[in-house]
Structure formats: structure tokens, C-alpha cells
Design a protein around this nucleic acid. Sequence first.
DNA 1: GTCTATAGGCCGATAGAC
DNA 2: GTCTATCGGCCTATAGAC
Lengths: 226, 226
Amino acid sequence: MAKTRRRGTEHSATRALLIETAEHLMREEGYAAVTARQLASKAGLKSQLLHYYFETMDDLFVAVIRRRGEKNLERLVKLAGTENPLQTIWQASQDGETASLWMEFLALANHRKAVREEVRRYIEQMRIVQMAALVRHFELHGVTSRVPAIVSTIFITGVSSLLVRESALGVLIGHQEVREFVDECLRSLTEGRIPTVLSLGAESASSAPPAAKPKQEAKAEKHNAP
Amino acid sequence: MAKTRRRGTEHSATRALLIETAEHLMREEGYAAVTARQLASKAGLKSQLLHYYFETMDDLFVAVIRRRGEKNLERLVKLAGTENPLQTIWQASQDGETASLWMEFLALANHRKAVREEVRRYIEQMRIVQMAALVRHFELHGVTSRVPAIVSTIFITGVSSLLVRESALGVLIGHQEVREFVDECLRSLTEGRIPTVLSLGAESASSAPPAAKPKQEAKAEKHNAP
DNA sequence: GTCTATAGGCCGATAGAC
DNA sequence: GTCTATCGGCCTATAGAC
């Protein structure tokens, strides 16, 4: 691929500027706006200079993702070390700026192999760290989980990304209720209590169901939230 | 905007072919591949004909989304009427073909106002129908929910879209565990039982936590899954 | 390391003939 | 309804001068 062409060093300030500007452009106007010309124009350079540092546009995108991914991972590790890692991480995951940038990366990844691989690595690393944070949270607050940490991690990630994604579209239906629900769960967990609500949130009713036979009765008395 | 130019009728077969082909192209190669020229080539037409039916490319995209959105809604309503609406809907939501198409729509929506509005309407309608299906499921199987139906709906949507999204990237970590967890929950709910696992999955431990004070002790004995 | 020049291509959209 | 012709623009990437 990279035949004989001269390329710039990895530690160039101009290269860093290009990556920085590309990320900014992507965040503001979407990845489709990240072209050599528009990017160079924003950075005050000539468009051809981009190809001195990056052979193809894909190489640029990969560099942008790698840099942002590393920063995010660092931040997550830091947050995971605080006193209430779950709350902190949940709050951080609500940041729309960060999330919308990753939406762009995801969209890019859909049809570009190199980008896809980079995004995949990032997601896997984030998952490991988040799971560790969750385990640590439970140890910190004297809670024993019944659900595999990996499952809780994925639930949290899935729900928070949905909230951010939909907010960007202007969909708000149910968001407030979800936030209150999650906040209450996290609060309970921090206090060493079982959340007062159940996973898919059901208790058996007093009368037998018409179509299905209940295998066993469940205890209905649970402590309620104040 | 639409000045004086001649345009084709809404009920044209050619128009339908263009929409159909556009969707196919989008699904296979992403929205960036949907250009007037590539689309016409696939459909065996001249590219300029597209502009006879759609003033701008955005108009085409909106038409594609509207058609697919209506079909999906219809299907969801049908599924919601079955005996086990929750399971059926959950299974359907795992369909990668459909989901990856909606990923494209979402990416498009990010920076195109007209598309965004169309996607927003679709999501809101889907949410209402899903919520109704959930309520109906509980009534059918004699279960009383403790969690607002809207919250459960959003959890299910968020988790299933995460699974599909990540699968497309090749991320698989934790997916099996999540599927088993959700399947178990849905099975329990169908049988009128409380899921044997808790929301964020915790029960209080025997020893007091080092950093936080537990407000109250929780009962540790619960029925376990076989 | 940054520039000018340029090849070669795809894009959306319009005008007007048939 | 569908076509031909065409405008004006933006794109990636390369070659080679300074």
C-alpha cells in the first residue's frame, strides 16, 4: 500500500493539529464534512499537506479515534477510582458532546474496515474497565451482585447511549422516568440496599393469569423507597 | 423552495422502484453510497430521472424512511397482538438487517433536519406501541409491574440496539450473558413470576461497607433459578 | 515541511428535446 | 415519463518545486 511516498513523523505538531481539527469538525458537522480541503481550511493549511501526514483519509480517521479513545479510557480509569464509581461513570456517560462524537465514529465504522477495528478495540477496553469499576463499587459498598457484572455494564451502556442518541434527535419520551429509575437504583446500591424495583419490574398478581400458570408465588412485601 | 419544476406523482411505479432500490443500496453499502448515479444504475434508469421524482436527495431519504417506518410499525402492532408479545418483540428486535438499516437512518439524521424529524416521529410511535404491548403482556400473564412500563420499554430498546450495533462491529463480549439474562427475565414474567434477578442486581452483604453506611438490611433469601 | 499544479473522478441539479 | 446534454462544484491523491 504505502509505496515510496515521503510521510511526516508521528510526533509532528502539524500532524497533531490536523487530528485535533478533524475531531472538532467531525463533532460539529459530522464525518462527511471531514474532507482534506475543509479540514485544511479550518487549520489554516493547504489541503495537500494532509496527505503528507496521512496516506488516506481512513488513516486520519483511525488516528482521530485512537487519540480520543485513549483519552476517554484514561478518564474512565480515573473515574473508576473515585468513591462512588457507578454514579460518576453514569453521569459522565450522559455527556452529549462525547457521545455524539462516538456516534460519528460508529457511523464511519459501519462501512470502513480500518475504522471498525479501531472502534471495536475501544469498546472492548471500555467494557473491561467499566466492569471492573462495577465490581469495585460493590466491594466498596458491601453489596453482593446477583447479576453478572458484565450484564449490568451492558445495560448501563445501552441505556445511556440510547438516552443521548435520542436526545440529539429531540426524542424525550420516557427519559425523565429512566433517569429517576437509574438514579434510585444507583443510590440504593451505594447504600448497600437492594434497589426497590425489579429488573423488568414485576411482582406476581393476586389472581391467576388467564393464559399462563405461575410456577411459584413470589413474596410481595418489599421495602419501599422513602 | 420547489419553484416551478415538473415532478412525478406519488403513486408512480418508478418512484416506488427508486425508493426500494435506495433502501437496498443503503442497507448493503451505507447511506453514502446512495447517490443519484449509483442508485439509477442499480435500478436501470438514468440518474436525472431521480430528480423528476425527488427535488433533493433529502426528499428521497425521507421517503425511504417513511415507507420503512410504516412497515415496521405495522409489524410491531401485529407482534404486539400475539400471545407472548414481549418475547416476540424481543426476538424481532434482534434482527440485524433491520437494525443496521436504522443505524444508517440515525447517522443520516444526525446532520439533516428533514431526516431527523422523520426518524424522531418513528421512534416516538414505536415507543408508544411497545409500551402498550408491555402493559398488555402483564395483563395477559397476571403480572403487576413495579417499574413504569415506559422505563422497561426503554431498557429493552437500549439493550437490544446495543447488541445489534456491537455485533456488526464484531464486539461480542458479554452478549451471551445478556441474552441469557433477558431470556430468563422474560420467561419469568410470562409465568407470572418475579425475575429471579434484580435490576442492577445486588443484595446486601453480611459485613458493613467501609465507606458507606447501609440504611437498612435487605432480606437475602430469594428463590433461585433452577 | 510546505507549497503549486494538476490529474481524474463523482456529485447534485437543471434545461429542454422527445 | 424518460431521455441527452451540460454546468459548476468538490473530492482524493500524486508529482515535483522550493
